[in-house]
Design a protein around this nucleic acid. Structure first.
Length: 500
RNA sequence: GCCCCCAUCGUCUAGUGGCCUAGGACGCUGCCCUUUCAAGGCGGUAACACGGGUUCGAAUCCCGUUGGGGGUACCA
């Protein structure tokens, strides 16, 4: 039972503290999002800290990717890399001195103690006493063992520093799961400092949270079992005046993949940037991510980041693991794409096209205008920017580089298409003005009335010949945007393809 | 082994003792609209893991079982 002041009563200081290893994954993004939304909702502070204490696995590249991910999602932070803050530095690799000091203070008053036992020592003792060796460390070194110490020193072994965990039940009130109790004796004294003097995550993470005045810790469920020992550390820190409160913990459910397994960094569908590359927009991603373990209301699941912040008080977080469902993510993203103002959508599509090399970064005004005109035609029919891009691609491809998708050709461009295309050429040549308005009656007269075809049969070949695909923006508008010359060129070229 | 968490349609969820004949969304599906693909409109499909309690009354509370997940490092 902690008698310390309630962290929940203080101004919110939340944090997001990833390790820079690998590529940011969706579970990580979800955790960042929840902490951000929680901090923003309570008009608190979001601290962004980099836990780069594992030199072997951390990389600058991953560090940069982390910032990139946060920025893309629109999650801003008040203290941390790039913005500094009163508790700088915010990279653990630069805080070694602080950890050494704190460890020394804790050691001096006995909250930490030197431990010389090796794993083999623990196992041997357990076997001898009939204790289950799978229980882990036996707290044997709480009272110094002269024999052990002498042997270790003779062997040149340095002691690790362990935390003395109180011999009582440890209970805390989890923000998402309610009261949780770990029985006395189920939490062995953890190692906080290596024999080499290097601090471990077990020390560094709570120490930084304490020093940085963190009041709320929203993190993955995998860290739930480590909470009691962290609380024990907090209490020691409070005792020596280094911390003021034990934060309120909230353990978020896992984000799982196809099985029921937690999504791992290895899993391709876990890669956040893959979604960006596929054409998800931040609003859609944020909305879907928020739905993984949270709900805004009974009959609603579409909301903007601002609406998320307004509603996110932390009370509706679920404890159930959530499976990442790409199809639902797609549907949500499509809805957000449609919610965009037309100009905004066109701008984002332009950016995407440039990035994919379909549109030149320095595209001229004519091309930009063409895109502005085409964008509204595809905004309603895409769930992803990539789908929209594929639909307008034909407009930005030169006639001599234009090629019909083989699958589309095989499907709708058959020998029987010849007379359809010929009639289309004649109709296109015949219209006085080349606009969707004039094309519609002309094409219908030529193909449907003239050839007696069903519209589906009539327009398939034309669509494929001109756009290269069986799926495209509305046909007449597509033709108009393409222009009469290119349209005729492509129709004739398709005719040629039929004869060869 | 030990400790912890979780358990409602295929999936994400709403539900905090009577409003539940269990609501929404995605998916799937029927119809309408329609030049393709979408979008949109109107329908349909489909769930409280099991067993005991408590209660006038349980998806909701308690216990147990089963199932799933996580943790158990001188990783983070």
């Amino acid at each position: 039972m902690t008698l310390t002041p309630a962290a929940s009563a203080r101004p919110v200081r939340a944090r997001f503290c990833p390790s820079p290893t690998g590529t940011p994954h969706v579970g990580l993004a979800r955790t960042a999002l929840f902490n951000w939304a929680f901090a923003r909702h309570h008009r608190g502070t979001l601290v962004f800290r980099i836990e780069d204490t594992d030199a072997a696995r951390d990389s600058e590249e991953s560090y940069a990717a982390l910032l990139d991910a946060m920025t893309w999602l629109g999650l801003d932070w008040d203290e941390g890399p790039g913005v500094g803050g009163p508790h700088a530095p915010y990279r653990q690799s630069q805080r070694g001195e602080i950890y050494r000091e704190v460890a020394a203070e804790l050691l001096a008053v006995g909250h930490l103690y030197e431990s010389y036992s090796t794993t083999d020592d623990v196992t041997a003792r357990s076997l001898a006493s009939g204790r289950n060796p799978q229980l882990g460390y036996d707290n044997h070194d709480r009272t110094p063992d002269p024999v052990l110490i002498e042997a270790a020193i003779a062997a040149g072994r340095k002691p690790v520093l362990r935390l003395r965990v109180p011999d009582r039940d440890i209970t805390f009130d989890d923000l998402v799961r309610g009261p949780i109790t770990f029985p006395a004796g189920s939490v062995p004294d953890p190692v906080l400092v290596r024999g080499t003097g290097e601090p471990l995550y077990t020390l560094v993470n709570p120490v930084d949270d304490a020093l940085m005045g963190i009041t709320h810790v929203l993190r993955g469920e995998d860290l739930l079992p480590s909470t009691p020992r962290q609380i024990a550390l907090y209490e020691a820190l409070i005792a020596i005046g280094r911390a003021e409160v034990v934060p309120q913990f909230g353990h978020l459910p896992f984000v799982t993949g196809e099985g029921n397994r937690k999504l791992s960094k290895r899993d391709p569908q876990a890669n956040l940037f893959q979604y960006r590359d596929d054409g998800f927009i931040p609003e859609g991603m944020v909305n879907y991510l928020a739905l993984l373990g949270w709900s805004i209301a009974e009959d609603r699941d579409i909301f903007t980041p601002a609406e998320l912040v307004a509603a996110f008080d932390g009370r509706r977080i679920s404890g159930n693991p959530a499976r990442f469902d790409r199809r639902k993510a797609l549907a949500i993203n499509g809805t957000h794409l449609r919610m965009l103002a037309p100009e905004d959508f066109a701008d984002r599509l332009a950016g995407y096209l440039v990035q994919r090399g379909v549109l030149a970064a320095d595209a001229d005004g004519e091309q930009r205008a063409l895109l502005q005109a085409a964008a509204p035609l595809v905004q309603e029919r895409s769930a992803l920017l990539s789908e929209a891009a594929e639909m307008v691609r034909f407009l930005f491809t030169a006639d001599d580089e234009f090629a019909i998708d083989p699958a589309a050709a095989a499907k709708v461009l058959t020998p029987a298409s010849r007379r359809v295309l010929e009639a289309a050429v004649a109709a296109v040549e015949g219209v006085p003005e080349f606009t969707a308005l004039t094309l519609e009656p002309a094409m219908k007269a030529a193909l449907i009335d003239g050839l007696g075809l069903k519209s589906k049969v009539a327009f398939g070949p034309v669509r494929a010949a001109v756009t290269g695909r069986t799926i495209s923006p509305p046909l007449y508008e597509s033709l108009e945007l393409l222009g009469r010359d290119s349209t005729l060129c492509r129709l004739r070229s398709a005719l040629q393809g039929l004869s060869s």
